[in-house]
Each structure stands twice: as C-alpha cells, then as structure tokens.
Simulated assay, not measured.
Amino acid sequence: MNRLLLTALLLITSSFVGAHNVVGGVYTIGDTIEGEAGFSNGDMAPAGIKVIVTDMQGASLGQTETDAEGVFRFKPSRYVTHHFTLDLGAGHTLALTLAAEELPAALAPTQAPAATAVTTAAAKSATALNSQIEAAVARQVKPLRRELRELKEAAGLRDIVGGIGYILGLCGIAALLRERKMRKETA
C-alpha cells in the first residue's frame, strides 16, 4: 500500500512541475504587427524561433523570428487577415490570428477620391502621432498581458489539493477492496 501511495504522489507532483501550455498574443503597434510567445509557466520563447506568416488561404506573407524576450515583429504589406504559426519544439505549436480590421488604416482599401496635399500631410502627421501613442501604451500594457496569461494558465492551489484528494480517495478505495479480498481469503 505504501508503494502505491508513494507512486501516486510522485506522479502527481511530477505532472505539475513540468506541465505548461504554449501562450501568446499578437497586436498592432503603429504600422507593425508585434507578437509574443511563451509558456504558461512564465518562460518566454527562445530567440530565433521561426514565425511563419500566411493569409487565410495559406498563401505565404513572409516570416520573421522571435527575439531574446520571445517577441516578434512583422511589417504587413497587405490588408488581409494574418495567421502566425510558431513551432516551439517538443510538440508545442502556437497559432495566432490578427484580423484585417486590426491592421493599420494605411493598408485599408480606399474608396474616397484622391486627397489634397494639405489633407495628406495632416493625415500623415496624425498617423505618426497615433503610432507614438500606440507604442507608448503597448509598452505599458505588454507586462500586464503577460501576467494575465500566466494567471489564466497557472494551476491554482485548489486545483492541486483537489487532484491530490482525488488520488488519495482512489488509493483508499483500492485499499478497501484489497482488505476485503484479504478477509475473504482468510475466511
């Protein structure tokens, strides 16, 4: 019985120590798409992970790589939904999607007549200011996004205690059945 209990406890603790999921996010900052990839235990993807970028039909839009912080950047050239695929090894694959509507307005198809030079200059100035604001906000929000993902993915103490209780309950049932069998054999 002691061996069974010890084996069950070892299996429980080893599964929680190494368990993690792949997590990530993708968003626009100015005229660039930025994304990040990592694991639910807080580790970020290593540098040099290839990021394949395709459209909805699977046609290649390009590729990029993660940096040392698990972040990747991609400059879109077409107003289409972008799919990002990362292979983090050991069966860990991450697929992210950014809808075309979230891309920079400059890529959107235009229906309006040609603008005047003054309007164009004002639009460029506003776009540059918007890009700076988006970059500043993104720097502040990025750590919050990462922390939120980690909290969502982490196994809580209640989950761990519940799992241990479940295993101990099963061990108790097994011990009860074993005891009954032994009583029948001795009778």
Rank of each mutant, 00 (worst) to 15 (best):
P113D: 07
R149T: 09
G165H: 03
G62D: 05
F39G: 02
Q111M: 08
K142R: 12
K50E: 10
G156D: 08
V161Y: 02
T120I: 03
N21K: 13
R146N: 06
S131Q: 09
V23T: 12
E147S: 12
N130I: 12
V161W: 01
I167T: 11
A105E: 15
S77L: 12
R180Q: 12
T120C: 00
L129W: 10
I52S: 15
L177R: 07
E65K: 06
V118K: 09
L11G: 14
V26N: 01
Y166H: 00
A8E: 12
A136M: 10
E179W: 14
N41D: 15
T116N: 13
R73I: 07
L88N: 07
I29M: 11
M56R: 15
Y27F: 12
G42D: 07
R183K: 13
G48C: 06
I33D: 02
K142S: 08
F74L: 12
T186A: 11
R73Y: 10
E101A: 13
H92T: 07
G70P: 05
A108I: 01
A59G: 05
R180H: 11
L144P: 01
A37V: 00
G35W: 03
S60A: 06
A106C: 00
Q63M: 10
A105K: 14
L96E: 04
F16N: 01
G25Q: 10
T13L: 11
T119S: 14
P76N: 04
I160D: 02
S14P: 06
A187K: 14
E69W: 07
L96A: 01
A138V: 02
T93F: 11
R3T: 05
G91R: 10
V80P: 02
P46W: 00
N21D: 14
A105Q: 14
V141Y: 14
A121G: 01
I160Q: 10
T64H: 02
E36R: 12
V137D: 11
V118A: 13
H20T: 08
A95E: 11
T54P: 08
Q57W: 08
N2T: 08
G169H: 04
A115I: 04
K181R: 13
N21R: 13
